[in-house]
């Protein structure tokens, strides 16, 4: 049953998403693009928070770092948008690795406070125009947007498709992670750090790995975000954004459908109820309160027991392939 939903679920999701710009006006296209980008960032946060179980409250820092890397390379050095992407992955990933090194031994609540600190330092740095390239409180404007050849009149939807492509890439990485030694190691150390060490897992290395991967994916989302607005500014990456990404993973649950649901509840629903002005953020608050009481592991929690079919089907006479 569940398997069937997944087999048709993903292609169906992408077909619907690919056709969406045909029916959306420009305001809703912006919402849809942001939905896709936030989903990528939430998936990257899930690697650190959901899979590895580390209370990282500074994911917007890596998202911003990617966006600023792209913006600076494009505006100051004239690099084409697409060429900035690899750098916007590598720089946040390196930052993730370097920042995680001294802090991953910290217990949950301490780690949370430290990562908030990192996020605040980052915002202060860009607001104060660090190195004279970040544009201060106003950020950086007038980036050259990614053109998709042959789209003609549909060019307005180009940022949306760029984001969708990056989402596809992210899901590919997440899928690979789930069926690899490194990805499983993250689950093991989240479940029981000491037990993971006692069967030979170097928990320190894999915690840093989680930060590296999570930061790299968030950086990639940063590039498509800078591309969407052809601008970057500090407030899009402040601590409150980190709270949003943290809450999405907690409310949605540590699974792809969970993350999609989380972004929908925490970001799209408030947009739908925009006419109720700031009251719409009630949804945000209530979603957090009620899921934690009623579904503490999120709306759609992680599912385990994904054993390769070849082995499961054999049942008793194990794995004679």
């Amino acid at each position: 049953m569940m398997k069937k939903i997944q087999v048709i679920g993903y292609p169906l999701f992408f077909v619907v998403m690919a056709l969406l710009p045909a029916v959306l006006d420009s305001r809703w296209l912006v919402v849809a693009t942001t939905f896709v980008i936030f989903t990528i960032v939430a998936l990257s946060q899930d690697v650190i928070l959901g899979k590895a179980g580390m209370f990282n409250m500074g994911q917007a820092l890596f998202f911003g770092l990617g966006a600023y890397t792209t913006a600076i390379l494009n505006s100051v050095y004239g690099w084409p948008m697409l060429a900035t992407l690899p750098v916007a992955i590598i720089i946040p990933a390196l930052f993730g690795i370097v920042l995680a090194g001294p802090i991953i031994h910290l217990r949950g609540d301490y780690l949370l406070v430290v990562t908030i600190g990192f996020n605040i330092v980052f915002i202060q740095a860009v607001q104060n125009n660090l190195g004279g390239v970040t544009g201060g409180p106003n950020g950086i404007f007038g980036l050259e947007m990614l053109q998709i050849p042959g789209m003609g009149a549909f060019q307005e939807a180009a940022p949306y498709y760029a984001a969708l492509f990056v989402l596809l890439l992210t899901l590919f990485i997440i899928r690979n992670l789930e069926s690899s030694k490194a990805g499983r190691a993250l689950h093991y150390l989240r479940e029981d750090d000491l037990a993971a060490g006692s069967i030979g897992i170097n928990t320190r290395v894999y915690k840093i790995f989680a930060f590296g991967v999570g930061a790299g994916i968030a950086g990639m989302a940063g590039t498509v975000f800078a591309n969407q607005y052809s601008a970057v500014s500090p407030e899009a990456f402040n601590f409150l954004q980190s709270v949003l990404f943290f809450s999405i993973v907690i409310v949605g649950g540590s699974s792809v459908p969970g993350i999609l649901l989380g972004v929908f509840v925490m970001f799209v629903l408030p947009e739908i109820f925009r006419e109720f002005a700031t009251w719409r953020y009630f949804i945000f608050g209530f979603a957090m309160i009620f899921t934690m009481i009623l579904r503490p592991r999120g709306l759609w929690p992680a599912k385990f027991g994904r054993i390769p079919k070849a082995f499961l089907e054999k049942g008793g006479n194990h794995g004679q392939q």
Binding site: K181, R184, A185, H187, Y188, E191, D192, L194, A195, A196, S198, I199, G200, I201, A302, F304, G305, I307, F311
Partner: peptide, 21 residues
């Protein structure tokens, strides 16, 4: 007993293969 409680039996045993992989 210290197992990875939310995970399946096979996944728990698979964790033992980590250093052999």
């Amino acid at each position: 007993i210290r197992l990875f409680g939310q995970m399946s039996v096979a996944e728990n045993v698979m964790s033992g293969r980590h250093i052999k992989s």
